[in-house]
Design a protein around this nucleic acid. Structure first.
Lengths: 223, 223
DNA sequence: CTGGATCCATGATGATACTG
DNA sequence: CAGTATCATCATGGATCCAG
């Protein structure tokens, strides 16, 4: 009896969930789609070592599970993948695993390990959500000259990461490169230079001070 | 270059977490260990179709990841597996996936699907945690004549499931069988008989009413 | 009986190249 | 840009066997 998809044959909702998102690469694809719609090659880049075959297979599985919507318009080359509401609902699970990794699987990047600034920003967002509660809303624009631009915003309740610059006027704008940003964030906070090379901070003096204060214990989630 | 364990080679804490717990069966083993220490064969039973080879491999991986502690005492036949504190910290992630499954992957049990009462109880615990807040602490004993016994308790803040009968005096005691309990819980609440066959409820009249009321919308997590 | 190990078959994934 | 095609390798499942 040829089984079309691998199942656990348990009547358990965790098993059911893992049948949908438990395959290798699947939750990493969801992680990258949580930032907003992406094209196939965007995902290829973010997912590092995945092969196109595996990625297209995963995307089809996610589509048929109702987790991803595919946007193909005739006459347009690009295909955009976006999460459905059911896909967005995976955010708490992805985040819980992320938090666990931050606590229990944190190691400096090994040589040859792909460091993508978006994933650092995601870790930062989660950490901010768990450790701080600023008094007022905040908007930070982070512009990677060699990669893309992101908005990290606090709405008075939670922090949000968006993979583009929002229309809102930012409190600060960070202009940097992937390497400089990675180097800056991976430097233990006490050792960080106040004017790090390759990281330009623009904005109000107090907003910049607040930014540095809020980043002060990244990436230590404890204490 | 022979890679001993499969990695993603991403500097991302979600990828790191999934390298530890992302393999097939791993989170299901953690799920079953969250209830308390278990022996190899307990896990074999709870995990349904896993082969001993895969289970022992997963347990060794979990042990070397610091998620599971193995208790081998000389002169004792059994080997007990238990979660370390790092393993217990997986509870939020397991639960978030469970909740997602409850919302988005709920289907009645298909014929041939193993139904373990413990997993139903776990779903019930999560649901109670998300939907109710009784005024006072509660202790329910559930005794399966053909399987084992569990305690579902509310301490004034959260619900806990334990895979044995605790010493506390229970508010109610349910004596049932795997089949009868499954049949009862899988019947839509409005159709449940007030004196279901094979499910004996013992205890104070008001406690029994409360029990029925609290189970009234299982397994619907929404609304 | 518990806690595995071993052998083999098969399916899932990876590397590389190529195409509409 | 968005994938397929082909081939090689690895992980998993099924069955069986074994030692304490």
């Amino acid at each position: 009896m040829a089984r079309t998809t691998r199942t656990y044959d348990h009547f358990c909702m965790l098993a059911r969930a893992l049948e949908q998102v438990g395959d290798r690469w699947t939750l990493l694809a969801v992680r990258d789609l949580l930032g907003g719609p992406r094209r196939f090659t965007d995902l290829m880049g973010l997912l590092g070592g995945i092969t196109p075959k595996t990625l297209s297979q995963r995307l089809r599985e996610l589509e048929s599970a109702g987790i991803v919507d595919v946007d193909r318009e005739p006459g347009r080359r690009e295909v955009w993948y976006r999460l459905t509401p059911a896909g967005e609902d995976l955010a708490p699970a992805v985040e819980a695993l992320f938090v666990w990794g931050l606590r229990h699987a944190r190691r400096p990047p090994t040589p040859g390990e792909k460091v993508h600034p978006e994933h650092l920003l995601k870790a930062l967002r989660i950490l901010l959500d768990q450790t701080t509660a600023p008094r007022h809303p905040l908007v930070w624009h982070i512009d990677f000259v060699d990669d893309g631009a992101y908005t990290l915003a606090y709405d008075g309740d939670t922090w949000t990461l968006t993979n583009r610059l929002t229309d809102t006027t930012p409190d600060i704008t960070i202009t940097t490169s992937r390497d400089a940003w990675t180097r800056h964030l991976m430097t233990p906070a006490p050792d960080r230079p106040s004017a790090p090379a390759g990281v330009e901070l623009a904005g109000d003096r107090r907003a910049i001070e607040q930014f540095k204060r809020l980043l002060a214990h990244f990436p230590d989630i404890d204490g």
